[in-house]
Each structure stands twice: as structure tokens, then as C-alpha cells.
Amino acid sequence: MLIDKNIKLVPFIRRPNRFQGYVSIDGKEEMVHVPNTGRCREILIPGTTVVLREENNPSRKTRYDLIAGYKGDKLINIDSQAPNKVVEEALRNGKIEALKKYTNIQREKTFGNSRFDFKLSDDEMREYYLEVKGVTLEENGKTMFPDAPTERGRKHLLELVEVVMSGRRAGVLFLIQLDGADYFTPHEAMDKPFSDAVRYAYENGVDVFAFDCKVGVDYITLDKRVEVRL
């Protein structure tokens, strides 16, 4: 996925709440939008270099979205809108081997009372429901989700089990928004109920995928499958 808007690299100052951050632009402090409800504490550190995407929308309170940050020399994308776009691009290009046969791709579709990120189907109209979770937390090659408790995420996993019980197929894909990940694992210490739900879903037929990405200041694209340790 290419980012075709103006990009700016600036120093990060602080994040007073989930959706607001402050950066230094040409020596002046300016508020920007942070499109991620996670904590991102290991990324959004005062003084670190972050990536801004300009949004030319006169109705906005901020000129820029803060979409990525450097952790040492590693660039981590934190835009919560990016994972679904990246996965859709990969699905349409046949880059996810296990799902290549599902050539009909639909976004934001419901099953029962649940809404999932993707509804896929093959030539014989066999259905597959896919939920995508963006991963930004990394420690020496170990990547984890979530970085903040998520009851909504746990609910999604239990709903995927219901899909499988109906005779359809389902999966969850953890998109690691950085490159060089060694493996992925649920973040037990942060959210044990979610971690238990991942294992429960896997044991009941839900596919659990993890992929890392190639990330640059103006692009992010799905790269390679990463080992999942449950």
C-alpha cells in the first residue's frame, strides 16, 4: 500500500490522550491526530522521530495523522486503518497462500449479529470469514497483541468460533506492522482473557495467521508469514 499524501518526519513531544499527540514542526509545537487506540508506549517516546501524513481536510482540527514511529532503527507503522487495506491488497494479489482460492473478497460483512473485516468465498461459494488485528508491540523480535486490554477483540474470536460451528471456515490474521519479526504470541500479561480466546478459537478450528510487513515512510505491504506461538 503506497501513501500518496505528503509525508513529514518530525520529533515527537507527547501524547496527552489516545487520539492526540504533539510534535515539533519547524520548531513549533503542533497537535496531530494519532489513529491508534493502543498505548504504543515503546514507540511514542519524547524525542523519537515519527512520520506524519498530511490530511488536506478543512473540517479537521489537525493537519496531520501520526502514522509511524522509529524504535531505534526500526520503523513501526501504527495507523489502525492500514491493516485492512494491506490485507485486502495481499488477498487480491494472491499473497496469502492459504487463502488464494477465495477470489471473491468483500469488506465489512456480517454473519448473524457479528460484523467481520472480510467475507471471502471461492468459485463454489464456500465462505470464509476473516478478522484482522494490527500488531505494533515488539520486543527483540517477539511480537504481541494486544498492547491494551480488548474485550471487543475477545468477542471477535468467540464469534469466529460460531462461524466454524455453522460449517463455514474462519480465521484471524495478526498483521505485524513492522519488518523482521521472529514470531507472534498473544500478550498474556496484558490481556489473559484475550489470549485464552485465541487458544480456544484455534482449538475449535479457527485459523490463526501472523504476517509481518515491509514498512517505509510512504508504504506498507504484507511480507512473510511469521510463526505463531500459542
Rank of each mutant, 00 (worst) to 15 (best):
V87R: 03
P83G: 06
R63L: 06
L99V: 13
E108N: 07
S80K: 03
R60Y: 08
Y70C: 06
N77E: 12
T62E: 11
Q81G: 13
A82G: 12
Y70W: 04
L99K: 04
P83W: 02
T103W: 08
L99F: 06
N104Y: 14
L66S: 05
K100F: 04
E88S: 02
E88H: 00
K109S: 12
Y102R: 15
Y64D: 06
K74S: 15
L52I: 06
K61Q: 11
G72F: 06
E97V: 14
L66T: 10
L66E: 04
Q81F: 14
P58Y: 09
Y102K: 09
R92T: 05
L99I: 12
K71T: 11
I105D: 00
A82F: 09
V51I: 05
V51P: 00
V87C: 04
Y102Q: 13
R107T: 09
G94K: 09
S80I: 04
R107V: 14
K71G: 11
R53P: 00
D73W: 02
E55I: 13
R53C: 14
T103K: 15
E97H: 08
N84T: 13
E88W: 00
L75Q: 11
N84V: 08
E88Y: 00
N56C: 07
K101N: 14
T103D: 08
P83N: 07
G69S: 07
S80Q: 10
N104M: 09
Y64K: 08
I96Q: 05
E89V: 04
R53D: 08
K101F: 12
I67A: 14
L75M: 10
L75D: 10
K101H: 06
I96D: 03
V51M: 03
A90P: 00
T103Y: 11
I67F: 03
R63C: 02
L52G: 01
L66P: 01
L91Q: 10
R107W: 15
N77Y: 02
